[in-house]
């Protein structure tokens, strides 16, 4: 499966998100995409393997204390 370039990825993502944007706007997305993707990838640190998310769920809300 050939790896896709940013242009193809952004095209697909905009379609998946059902967004129609102007050519210049899309050009900006294509330019920015690689850095955005690497910023996101950089968060998958090995030391986080067993770390819980910072947002937790409270089932009692909306019930009388």
């Amino acid at each position: 499966m050939p790896t896709l370039d940013s242009e193809a990825i952004v095209t697909g993502l905009l379609a998946a998100a059902q967004l129609t944007v102007s050519p210049q706007e899309k050009a900006t997305f294509v330019k920015d995409y690689p850095l955005m993707r690497s910023n996101a990838d950089a968060l998958y640190l090995a030391e986080l393997e067993f770390v819980e998310p910072a947002v937790t769920f409270d089932p009692t809300v909306y019930y009388p204390a």
Binding site: A40, L43, L45, E47, L48, V51, E52, P53, A54, V55
Partner: peptide, 10 residues
């Protein structure tokens, strides 16, 4: 997003 939240805890 879930991973960013884990990073946030750390």
């Amino acid at each position: 997003y879930a991973q960013a939240s884990r990073f946030r805890s750390m």
